[in-house]
Amino acid sequence: MFDSGKFVSVGDTNLFVSEAGNPQGRVIVLLHGGLQSRRDFIPLAQNLAKDYRLIAIDTRGHGRSGLGTASLTYRQLQDDFTLLLTTLGLQKFGIIGHSDGGIVALRLAASRAVQPEFVIAVGAHWVLPENDPARQIYQTINLEKWRGMFGSQIAVYNTENPKPDFGKLFKAATQMWLGCDENAYPGASVKNIQCPLLVVHGDDDMLVSRQQAFDLAEQVKGARLLNIPFASHTLLEDMPERIFPFLQDFMKLVPA
């Protein structure tokens, strides 16, 4: 799943786009987390594939997509996906975004440059205050620690990326995570989101607090909050069968 696909030009680079699932089904765009790839959605996608047309995109620098020359910021990723989705000519689609992908999904919906039918934001910050514990994690994590935790993911990246340089990508990603200007987290702009929003949070998420998830749901009119007990930041990979029924119930409430 998600092994084949095509490259779409977005300014200074090319993004890899892969499809799976039911070609006649409702369209869901899958946006992965930082330093991951489209492949991390496979466990969930196996549950979605029967009924939905799935479009998984490698963020610039990740998976098979080139890093390009632009700075890696959430604003840049928003612009990338806006152009890509427009180029693909998608008229109706929902978005499931995990972590960085969820942050970008929030920015996309808030900007209204594209009009998703719904957004499911999983383990995603909408703001990152200076005193947020996640900032300390981002400030202290280093390349060797990351290699120790996610060596197998890096090996796949080195195999499939056209110009692999994980050290460069790691530095760019950590700088993005620590950003605090208008190019970073969506902040108060999430109030502009008009499409249905489901905020999904793992109660044992070491990066995103329960309060952060609750506050995001409170910012957006009509938003729903799904807090999963005993679930970590990687809940979509760890327990897709448990999460899938809730996502399906939410999507069924959104008119097709």
Score class of each variant (00 low, 15 high):
177 W>M: 10
129 P>C: 08
5 G>L: 00
180 C>I: 12
85 L>P: 02
61 G>P: 05
116 P>Q: 11
131 N>K: 14
125 H>N: 14
236 L>C: 00
36 Q>T: 03
92 K>G: 04
75 R>G: 11
105 A>H: 09
13 T>A: 11
161 N>V: 08
71 S>E: 08
189 S>H: 10
251 M>F: 07
71 S>P: 08
198 L>E: 05
173 A>V: 14
248 Q>L: 15
126 W>V: 01
43 P>R: 06
80 D>P: 02
200 V>Y: 11
41 F>Q: 00
145 K>P: 00
93 F>S: 10
158 N>P: 12
91 Q>W: 00
107 R>Y: 12
174 T>F: 15
58 D>R: 02
195 C>V: 15
120 I>T: 06
74 Y>S: 03
73 T>I: 10
182 E>H: 14
52 Y>W: 09
52 Y>I: 12
142 N>D: 15
184 A>W: 01
39 R>G: 00
181 D>N: 13
161 N>Q: 15
195 C>S: 07
113 A>N: 13
4 S>N: 12
53 R>I: 14
58 D>F: 06
65 S>Y: 04
202 G>V: 12
168 K>P: 10
251 M>W: 11
71 S>I: 01
221 K>W: 06
208 V>L: 08
167 G>P: 10
178 L>P: 04
212 Q>Y: 02
224 R>F: 07
131 N>V: 15
185 Y>R: 06
147 R>Y: 06
169 L>K: 02
23 P>M: 11
109 A>D: 01
104 V>N: 05
177 W>D: 06
24 Q>I: 07
231 A>H: 04
240 P>H: 14
120 I>Y: 09
98 H>F: 05
165 D>P: 07
192 N>A: 09
57 I>V: 12
27 V>W: 01
116 P>H: 08
48 L>G: 10
97 G>K: 03
210 R>L: 10
8 V>P: 04
203 D>P: 08
207 L>C: 04
151 G>P: 02
187 G>M: 03
161 N>P: 10
172 A>Y: 11
28 I>L: 13
226 L>G: 11
83 L>G: 05
236 L>I: 10
124 A>F: 06
110 A>N: 07
216 L>I: 04
41 F>K: 03
220 V>G: 03
122 V>D: 06
97 G>D: 09
186 P>W: 08
27 V>F: 02
174 T>W: 15
168 K>I: 12
